[in-house]
Amino acid sequence: MPRAVRTTALLSAFCIILTSCRPSPRKPHVEPDGLDSTSTVMSYGGSLFPIPSAWEVAHLLIRQQLDYAPQLLNPTHNAPRYTTSDKQALNLGVWAADLSYLNTYHKSQQMVEVLLAVRQMCSALGLEQTLQAALPSTMDSSPEPPPQTFASIISQSFGALGHELAQTDRAHVGALIIAGTWVEGMYMLTQLATTTSNRELINRIGELRQPLANLVDMLSPYYYTSSPIADLVDQLLILQQDFEGVIHTYTYKPATVQPAQRHITINSTSRIVISDYLLADIARHVHDIRTNIVE
């Protein structure tokens, strides 16, 4: 099927999946004076710690020209097994990462299946109306939308979910969604790195030390809210210990600015050294964490 047709077909399916939710009055997404102090802020000691998105992992995999590996994905037939909100949130995050991966490989049919599972999780978490309302108001009305449209829609939809969860005092659910996404991305990286010995993938794993620390900081305030969260944090702390063995060097170099293009190239360099033994340990621990989430 031509790519443009495939793209529009998938967009149609995505919209149908989202808009087939129960009709309801659209809740205005208004912040008084543009202020929203309850968003998914991750603030510890005055600092905020963003977590890398699954798109960055998917982009790396496609750049390495790695073959599509469907066995890495969480099968959508697992959806009915997730009966607690913790599991639903974590696997919503897992499938968000899977969507990024599938979109990168242009796997339209599989994306529709995952979107159905996403909708199922959203429904269970009381988020389906938020998902429905998250359709971007600035969507390109071109008859042949670019593939990035899907990425934008998915990204904005999950952003809206996080916003809604924070506003309804369920920020811990939002944190679990982000955690599920991060673990799934890490799982893909470690599985592919150990089977291919691809140096760039191995380096990327080593570079995830700071994001892992951010993730632990993000989840820690919810440690005592449920035993699954406590278990997850405990497992992530063990993984953090593995990362103590990663050697990281950094050299500052002046950046190159192109003011007319509003662009800067950061020329500083970093280097990662990670042993095969350590990589295997990290892969094993990530596998265990991911198994606990999807089983």
């Binding site: 102090s37 977590i51 916003h163």
Partner: peptide, 14 residues
């Protein structure tokens, strides 16, 4: 812009 995909997180601070 259309070239960039956000990380889906709102990084807001006082």
């Amino acid at each position: 812009g259309s070239e960039f995909v956000t990380d889906g997180q709102e990084h807001i601070a006082p």
